[in-house]
Simulated assay, not measured.
Amino acid sequence: MPADLSPQKRALRAELRERRRNFTSTERSATAAGITERLIALAQSVGAKSVSCYLSATDEPDTRGFLRWADEQGIRALLPIARVDGLLDWAIAAGDDEEVGLFGMPEPVGELLAPTAINDVDLIIVPAACVDKRGVRLGWGRGYFDKTLGSMENCPPVYAVVFDTEVLDEVPRERHDQPVDGAVTPTRTLRFTADRT
């Protein structure tokens, strides 16, 4: 029977959350342009006409510049809305309308689309606490994205967005943890050979 990695994951999440809280607004602003630039280049490289992304919270790498660009380019962007049953509904990004969601995270305001709406996107951009060089992603512990990615038959490329210091040598992985194909940081885009088994 595999070891329970939950305590190890909780400790790592707490450490990373504290690091993010200690970033100054100047440091945070300095990373936003790099994240936007790299996300745009990534979307262009896959010829994305539709993407799924998320509204970044204050402590997260900023995805809002990318979402503004996608809107200007006519790229359809789906944003997640957490449900109490552990699934994600989606809404099409439309302007700056948002509200506080189930776990205190920003969520879009708009028509709800079913969890299967993500099946039509060309690129998936997910939040993460950290990733490792094998493509193992550590989320924030609720399993929404692992469940979503694990249920997709033809999953498009999946990229996590993290700060540079959150690309680690190794991240604990349990059976349900879904890998990512790459990571976008303020200074680089990394591609991994994701093991989806």
Score class of each variant (00 low, 15 high):
40 I>L: 09
4 D>I: 13
183 A>N: 10
33 A>D: 14
115 P>E: 10
57 A>L: 08
188 R>K: 15
127 P>R: 03
80 P>D: 07
193 T>N: 14
17 R>W: 05
81 I>W: 06
192 F>I: 05
24 T>Y: 05
184 V>E: 07
62 D>E: 12
51 V>D: 00
66 F>P: 00
46 V>A: 11
188 R>G: 08
141 G>Y: 11
136 V>K: 02
19 R>E: 03
174 E>F: 12
120 D>R: 13
68 R>W: 09
62 D>P: 02
63 T>K: 01
144 Y>N: 06
67 L>K: 03
180 V>W: 04
191 R>P: 01
62 D>T: 03
69 W>N: 08
120 D>K: 13
122 D>A: 12
116 T>C: 04
141 G>V: 07
153 E>F: 06
145 F>D: 01
152 M>C: 09
89 D>F: 02
14 A>E: 13
41 A>I: 06
58 T>G: 03
11 A>Q: 14
70 A>E: 08
44 Q>V: 12
73 Q>T: 10
167 V>F: 10
63 T>A: 09
12 L>F: 10
165 T>C: 13
47 G>V: 06
170 E>S: 15
167 V>S: 09
46 V>M: 10
157 P>V: 08
135 G>W: 03
175 R>P: 05
179 P>T: 12
33 A>L: 13
129 A>C: 13
49 K>L: 11
57 A>Y: 01
189 T>N: 08
162 V>P: 03
118 I>F: 10
10 R>P: 00
138 L>V: 07
191 R>N: 15
181 D>M: 06
96 D>Y: 05
184 V>P: 07
8 Q>N: 06
119 N>F: 04
31 T>Q: 08
8 Q>Y: 02
186 P>N: 10
52 S>F: 05
74 G>R: 02
177 D>T: 07
162 V>I: 12
95 G>D: 13
196 R>F: 15
112 L>Y: 09
125 I>D: 03
116 T>M: 07
163 F>P: 00
13 R>V: 07
95 G>F: 11
157 P>E: 12
133 K>H: 15
45 S>P: 03
119 N>Y: 03
158 V>R: 04
55 L>V: 07
153 E>S: 14
106 P>M: 04
170 E>C: 12
39 L>D: 01
8 Q>V: 14
68 R>C: 04
56 S>R: 00
184 V>Q: 09
101 G>C: 04
118 I>D: 07
47 G>H: 11
103 F>M: 08
103 F>V: 01
113 L>I: 09
159 Y>D: 03
149 L>C: 11
93 A>V: 00
104 G>R: 05
126 V>M: 06
152 M>I: 15
168 L>F: 12
47 G>N: 11
20 R>T: 02
151 S>W: 01
19 R>C: 00
55 L>K: 05
34 G>E: 05
